[in-house]
Design a binder for these strands. Structure first.
Lengths: 156, 156
DNA sequence: CGTGAAACTTTCAAGAT
DNA sequence: ATCTTGAAAGTTTCACG
């Protein structure tokens, strides 16, 4: 699918503020609401716009810790990987699960309320899994940027 | 701030669908739109709800690559770190920048359209920075989960 | 918290450029 | 083809009970 500059601007605006009204977007891109709606519907149908989410203030909810967890599996058979992934994606504190190339097999991003909670999470829900050989914690001290906004080029 | 079960459910719903209408939310939590609006305003003011965003389908926009980049700085003075972070957060392809404890100093999440693009990004925008000693790329092969949804406890 | 009312937004069909 | 207009339905937002 080809994005003209108006589509690109709509994507930029909705990445920045996912609750912006079509009337508002229309004004900023120099159209009326109807064609903006049509374009957004088209962008959603094409999968260019995938979903909309509120992002919560984690620390306000008591999540004082973020960490990346590098996981090495015991073996790398298809079934082994499948079962590990199936179990790990069900853990709500695991926000991300990436299969990676490198010394380790998977890189997880996890949140926890406290070191104690983190310990329980790692022990009971991760290290515990029969496929896991070893885990390494990379503790996040602070995050200077944490966004899902990708660049939508203005000059095609 | 204390979240009662209705606040928690509102947070859960808005994490799941950031464009859900207040009328819709109201129906699901068994209220009318007015009190839902009041609660959302309060949650936003308290920073529990931080922001709303559309998440784009990266691959549809040509971002075929995701990688984590572990960075070691030459030194760890306050100014050095500050200047590195200030430069790195301006790079649109760098979606996340975390200060970490471990062998490396920073962990970045970056997206790129191709290996060539990735090379340019790493060379010209990262390795290049005067504070950087060394970078290590951890290539993402696939992501089984990539979310910002944190658990909002149902049982206080 | 609910109601009702005003203002605004969404959404669609028909017609203009 | 894509936009505008205009109108109906739905949503937001407020003051009052």
């Amino acid at each position: 699918m080809v994005l003209d500059p108006v589509d690109q601007e709509i994507c930029r605006l909705l990445q920045e503020n996912g609750r912006m009204t079509f009337a508002d977007i229309a004004q900023r891109v120099g159209l009326t609401a109807a064609p903006v709606l049509a374009r957004v519907n088209k962008l959603e149908a094409a999968g260019v716009i995938g979903s909309y989410h509120a992002v919560l203030g984690r620390e306000k909810l008591g999540f004082a810790m973020t960490a990346f967890v590098a996981v090495i599996l015991k073996s790398h058979g298809t079934a082994e990987c499948r079962d590990f992934v199936a179990a790990i994606v069900e853990v709500p504190e695991v926000l991300e699960c990436h299969h990676i190339a490198g010394e380790e097999d998977y890189l997880l991003k996890v949140v926890a309320q406290s070191p104690k909670d983190y310990e329980r999470l790692i022990n009971d829900r991760i290290t515990n899994l029969p496929q896991v050989r070893r885990v390494k914690t990379i503790l996040v001290l602070s995050s200077a940027k944490e966004s899902t906004t990708v660049p939508v080029k203005v000059n095609p």
